[in-house]
Computed example of a mutant assay.
Amino acid sequence: MIKQVRSYRRPKIVVIGGGTGLPVILKSLHQENADITAVVTVADDGGSSGVIRNYMNVVPPGDIRNVLVALSNLPQLYLDIFQYRFNSKDSFLAGHAIGNLIIAALSEMKSGIFDAVQELSDMMEIDGHVYPASNEPLVLNAHFSDGTELAGEAGITAADKKINDVWVTGAQPGFKPHAVHEVINAIMSADAVVLGPGSLFTSILPNLMIENVGQAVLNTKAEVIYVCNIMTQKGETEHFTDADHVRVLHRHLHAPFVNTVLVNTAPVPDDYMDRKKYDEYLLQVQHDFNGLRGLGCRVISNNFLKLRDHGVFHNGDQVAHEVLNLALQAHRRN
Score class of each variant (00 low, 15 high):
247 R>F: 00
253 L>E: 05
225 I>H: 03
232 T>W: 01
206 P>M: 07
209 M>F: 00
214 G>V: 04
199 S>G: 10
201 F>T: 12
262 L>Y: 07
196 G>Q: 09
212 N>V: 04
226 Y>M: 09
257 F>W: 11
233 Q>C: 07
263 V>A: 04
273 M>D: 00
224 V>F: 01
211 E>F: 02
261 V>Q: 03
275 R>T: 14
258 V>A: 07
197 P>K: 08
221 K>N: 15
260 T>D: 02
223 E>F: 00
256 P>L: 01
232 T>C: 13
264 N>S: 07
252 H>V: 12
238 E>Y: 03
194 V>N: 09
213 V>D: 00
207 N>K: 02
276 K>M: 09
218 L>P: 01
219 N>S: 14
244 D>R: 10
219 N>W: 00
267 P>W: 01
276 K>V: 14
254 H>W: 01
234 K>F: 01
274 D>I: 11
252 H>Q: 15
256 P>Q: 14
259 N>F: 01
253 L>H: 08
227 V>R: 05
250 H>R: 09
245 H>W: 05
274 D>K: 11
196 G>F: 08
245 H>D: 10
199 S>M: 10
225 I>G: 06
249 L>P: 06
198 G>C: 12
251 R>S: 15
266 A>L: 04
219 N>H: 10
221 K>S: 14
215 Q>E: 15
256 P>S: 15
212 N>S: 03
239 H>N: 14
195 L>Y: 08
201 F>G: 08
243 A>I: 11
217 V>G: 02
195 L>W: 09
248 V>N: 06
269 P>F: 06
235 G>P: 09
236 E>N: 12
266 A>I: 05
196 G>A: 09
233 Q>Y: 08
243 A>K: 08
237 T>V: 10
260 T>N: 04
254 H>K: 15
271 D>A: 14
252 H>M: 14
275 R>F: 01
272 Y>H: 12
194 V>Q: 08
194 V>Y: 05
211 E>H: 13
229 N>S: 14
245 H>N: 13
270 D>Q: 14
206 P>Y: 03
217 V>F: 01
244 D>C: 11
265 T>S: 14
229 N>M: 11
241 T>Y: 07
195 L>H: 12
206 P>T: 10
235 G>F: 05
236 E>I: 13
210 I>S: 01
220 T>W: 03
